[in-house]
Nucleic acid binder design. Sequence first.
DNA 1: TCAGTGGGTTGACGTTGTCAGGTGAAACCT
DNA 2: AGGTTTCACCTGACAACGTCAACCCACTGA
Lengths: 191, 191
Amino acid sequence: MVSRAESAAATRRALLDAAAELLDEGGPDAVTLREVGARAGVSRGAPYGHFADKETLLGAVAAEGWERLSDEIAALDGTPSDRLRGALAALVTIGRRHPHRYRQMFAPPAGDEPGSMIRASCRTQEEFLAIVSELVDEQDLHRYGGLLFTGVSGIIAAELSGHFATGTWRTSADELVDTLATIIADGRLHT
Amino acid sequence: MVSRAESAAATRRALLDAAAELLDEGGPDAVTLREVGARAGVSRGAPYGHFADKETLLGAVAAEGWERLSDEIAALDGTPSDRLRGALAALVTIGRRHPHRYRQMFAPPAGDEPGSMIRASCRTQEEFLAIVSELVDEQDLHRYGGLLFTGVSGIIAAELSGHFATGTWRTSADELVDTLATIIADGRLHT
DNA sequence: TCAGTGGGTTGACGTTGTCAGGTGAAACCT
DNA sequence: AGGTTTCACCTGACAACGTCAACCCACTGA
């Protein structure tokens, strides 16, 4: 019924899901290979057949996070301005719903299989640039596109660190994201 | 010669320095309490006399990072625009020179003594707002101040993750920081 | 002088990442 | 078909780690 390759693929899938689940629950330190194996229904040493080490497994989880984000952005429709705000909202949402996974996505890719995480994040960048290119001049594309994406990621990171809840800024992440999007999407900038 | 209190303070200082050194060298996982003790000239259990656990020790290192950044920003002089760029440059510099410590400063403060890290980062925010307040209207102060600070932190985080070197953005962190600073410092925004 | 305090050490325990060797069933070959 | 190879997986083992309890001892205050 199930070939050996299918069985192995299913195990790999289960390992990734278990790792993502544990990451969401308690951060990278809560992802123990023993528990990953247990939740995937295999033994503690099984992950080593699919991933070089724990670092690589977490990198694969992060890569899948980028992949999913890319798909979400690609599926957006509406006006360019709508899609821009939708893309930023997708980034905000993943940060709030899966803070640890989000942090992993922005972690330096140590032990990254063959650069799979970087490749996945590049696809997200491309989907994002496709939207921004409809809103700004070509000469400003990468500058404003990069600014929007990295800027919003920093705003979310600050929120996750508690720098808004307990900090001095009398504002919110949502307001900042909106401000940034408005500045660029509505062309309120005069060069 | 040396009182007990002085000796204890010196040990605490040595522990913090050793932890910061190890953090810079190899990230949080490279900070082992055994090695921290060894470099500080004490035993592996000594840190527990000064910090609740490893998490708290790392939090204290992060808090000192914020303190030092606050001092740097407070010591700036020149025009408001100069000081703004100087403050942003200080953030960029610490990110590049001490990437792991930088990341720790933006990590969620788990096991934070009595919120010492948050308190330290608030001081940085205040020093920063003092500069921004000379450049924008009061009603925009927190919005633009927060946007600058968190935005730049995100740009640096993206650079540290390799999202510029290997990514799609045909731009650099420096250019983005400059763009963001220019937008706000030079009032190129029309509301 | 003498008990008390507290910084520091050491032994010990459970947990973790990781690897070497073994096992059994699927895949391949003739 | 039968024998052989392959490979995903399991298990035992090991070193390193965070953490705690018990202990030691120099300094402190009266």
